[in-house]
Nucleic acid binder design. Sequence first.
DNA 1: CTAAAGGTTCACGTTGACGTGAAGGTCAAG
DNA 2: CTTGACCTTCACGTCAACGTGAACCTTTAG
Lengths: 121, 121
Amino acid sequence: MQIGALARRAGVSPRALRYYEEKGLLTPGRTSGGYRDYTDEHVETVRRIRILLAAGLNTDMVSEMLPCMVNDGEFLAPGCEDLIAEFERERRRIDTQIAELHDVRSALTGIISAGRAFADR
Amino acid sequence: MQIGALARRAGVSPRALRYYEEKGLLTPGRTSGGYRDYTDEHVETVRRIRILLAAGLNTDMVSEMLPCMVNDGEFLAPGCEDLIAEFERERRRIDTQIAELHDVRSALTGIISAGRAFADR
DNA sequence: CTAAAGGTTCACGTTGACGTGAAGGTCAAG
DNA sequence: CTTGACCTTCACGTCAACGTGAACCTTTAG
């Protein structure tokens, strides 16, 4: 599969795929002509990358997590044990972020309902 | 209160306070010498700005929300009614973001627990 | 053989929320 | 009246995840 096909299937730009490779998140094969050659597994990998990036992780963190993700969250390679502390830090960061988002959400809800009450008067 | 004092009380840099002013989030008075002059209310305003920015809102959104925030989330000025639709869009964005964070959080938890099981074997 | 579609590697541009000097003005203290 | 701490306004630098050409190569179809 060429880069354009993967881009369409994964819903990202070819540029993004080249960027992920540059950051070590994706390692396609190469054809004799120098074209990148992707497999079906890469589609799933790209989906995971997008989810992790969307949650605010950076590419370094994603590159550490990907080899530790198999199926629905089982464990994979030796080497991942050393990263547990880092993952726990990241999880705390996410908990903090979720809490902050909840605060802002309720603030927004307060403004919205107050606005509605005002408009419905 | 000068900019340095507010910076210490609010836990931000003087540069950030000047930036907030440039973006219309903060409007201090001026002394005869040209120094910015802040009041105690500005401390609370800065705290709100930080919370909103930390939740991923941009300065434009914050500048629209601030005048609509009074006390613990009551309603304030006329003009805020027109922004309700925008606030609802923002709230949906936040809901999406929270869901994404929960997904990544459970993925992290899966990896961590699998790693622990592996280490405890 | 040739054109078109899609690929390749640079390499600079973008956006947002600031950081970081540079060059100089203000003000209370000694 | 001078030092030192603090302030002022430019104005360029940073970082991350790409966007956007430029110049060129590969592959398939007619």
